[in-house]
Amino acid sequence: MLELRLVQGSLLKKVLEATKDLVTDANFDCSATGFSLQAMDSSHVALVALLLRSEGFEHYRCDRNISMGMNLNNMSKMLKCAGNDDIITIKGDDGSDTVTFMFESPNQDKISDFEMKLMDIDSEHLGIPEAEYHAIVKMPSSEFQRICKDLSSIGDTVVISVTKEGVKFSTRGDIGTANIVCRQNKTVDKPEEATIIEMNEPVSLTFALRYLNSFTKATPLSESVTVSLSSELPVVVEYKIADMGYIRFYLAPKIED
C-alpha cells in the first residue's frame, strides 16, 4: 500500500516537465526515505536523479519499498490535468499494475482520479560516488538558462572554465565564437540572485549544449542552480526543490580523442 499526499502538487508537475524530454521510461522508487528516481537518457550521456523526501509530503505511507515503472510522457499527460494549486495524491497497491493520481482542488470542490498503467522497466541503478569537486558555482537558475540558450544559437558545445576570475562559458560555431564570463557577486538584494564561486582548483570541461538546455527545463523548480565541476567527471547540475529534496542532472563531458 502506497499513499503519498503532496499539497504543493505543482512541484510534481514541474518535475515531469523537467525530465520527460530526457528520459522516456523510468522506475519511481518509493521507500521510507522518500519518492525517488534515477534514470539515464537513451544514449547514456546524461543521468537524472530526483529525491522528494518523505517529510515533504503531508501524508506519506509506504508499507514496503516499491518500484513503479512509468512512461514519463504518459505521466506528464495525466499530471497536466491537475491544476497548479491542486493537491496531488499518488496511490498504489502491492502487486497492482496501475498507479492512481488523485487531484483535489484547493477548496475541495473538484476531485479527480486518473489511473495509469505501470510498465516493467529493466533499469540499471548506478552507484554515484561522493566526489570532491574542483569548483562549485551557484548562480540564478534563470541566468544559467539564458546562457545555455544563447550559446546554443552559436555552437553545439560549451567549454565551462572556472578560474579565479570567475566562470567562463565559451562556444564556437560556423558564424563565430562567444564567451560569457560571470564573476562572483554576493552584493545582491536576495540570496538567490547571488553568484557564488567556490574553487579548489581551476577546471575546464566541454559539454554538449543540447543536454544542458534540456536540464534547464527544471528552472521553474528553483531560483538558483548549482553547477559542480571536476576534471574528467560528469558535471552535476542541481536544482533544489524547496523543503523536499532535489533534482540533479549529471552530464558526461566531451573528452579529447
Binding site: 539515464m40 547514456h44 541503478h125 548506478l126
Partner: peptide, 14 residues
C-alpha cells in the same frame, strides 16, 4: 576532435 563520453564510464552499476 573531442568525443562524447558516457555516464557509465564514470559511475559503476549498483
Amino acid at each position: 576532435g573531442s568525443k562524447q563520453s558516457t555516464i557509465t564510464k564514470f559511475f559503476g552499476k549498483f
